[in-house]
């Protein structure tokens, strides 16, 4: 059975994950089609970050199935490197490599991992830095950039690998309020370009604006999901209602 774009790009079925005694995911299922932007929201500790970290095998799962383009991730034989070439990730703490400049951060993986030609990679990398609106900062080290700028470099770094889907793990949570906007704008640009995005976020207004589908998680399960309009206006579950009333 080969995967086609008519099938979900990422498909989770009954995913269970625990850290020792602590159960973090209790049977999560969701499908993401190519070009979809989905937002996962929910209270802290509800397993949102763990959920997306399982998709690129940063965390392993105990039970269930995660398919990325038809490839089973929950399989000891899975080629994690091949998987991670398809699935990009952006972290809350940016995690740029501090000993490399912004441009080098973007260029390194395509050259070293994908073994692409250095000159072409540099061309692409410069274009990506321009795309995230950081022209002129190519030679700055991460330590010289603001949080928002670092996060945009991190997004460019992830894009340089030409992934099919990008995971965003609370990417604005550590930012100063005035730089949140520029990062969200960058993600919005990506979404408009048709990039498949899976976001864990606390930015409700943003989720409402860009998401095709919203998932609300609590205590390791998906409580409710739907398109943004229905979700925000007609929440059914009391837990969702309570959560929304607290933050809206």
């Amino acid at each position: 059975m080969s995967w086609t774009t008519a099938d979900p790009m990422v498909s989770l079925k009954d995913v269970h994950k625990s850290f020792g005694e602590l159960k973090v995911l209790n049977g999560v299922s969701l499908d993401v089609m190519k070009g979809d932007v989905i937002c996962i929201i929910g209270p802290s500790g509800s397993g949102k970050s763990t959920l997306i970290r399982c998709i690129n095998a940063l965390n392993d799962i105990q039970q269930g199935s995660i398919l990325v383009e038809g490839q089973e991730v929950n399989d000891p034989k899975v080629d994690k490197l091949e998987l991670r070439k398809k699935v990009g990730m952006v972290f809350q703490q940016y995690n740029l490599f501090p000993h490399k400049t912004a441009l080098q951060n973007v260029m390194m993986a395509p050259i070293r991992v994908l073994k692409h030609d250095k000159i072409k990679v540099e061309e692409v990398a410069r274009a990506l830095i321009k795309k995230v609106r950081l022209e002129g900062k190519e030679n700055a080290y991460p330590g010289e950039l603001s949080g928002g700028q670092q996060q945009r470099v991190a997004i460019a770094r992830s894009l340089a690998m030409q992934p099919d889907v990008i995971l965003f793990d609370e990417v604005t949570a550590a930012l100063d309020p005035e730089t949140v906007g520029e990062v969200l704008q960058t993600i919005k640009d990506l979404a408009e370009d048709g990039m498949t995005c899976i976001l864990v976020t606390h930015e409700m207004a943003f989720a409402r604006e860009v998401a095709d589908h919203i998932y609300f998680t609590d205590r390791g399960v998906i409580v409710e999901h739907g398109p943004p309009e229905t979700f925000f206006q007609n929440a059914q579950d009391p837990r969702t209602k309570e959560f929304l009333s607290q933050i809206l």
Binding site: R84, V87, M89, F91, N95, L96, F97, M108
Partner: peptide
């Protein structure tokens, strides 16, 4: 910070590459 390892992992670096380059 463990984030350095995670970032490298998520960019499909091998463990050896992560160690030597990052």
């Amino acid at each position: 910070p463990s984030g350095q390892w995670e970032a490298a992992e998520s960019l499909a670096y091998t463990r050896m590459q992560t160690l030597w380059l990052i």
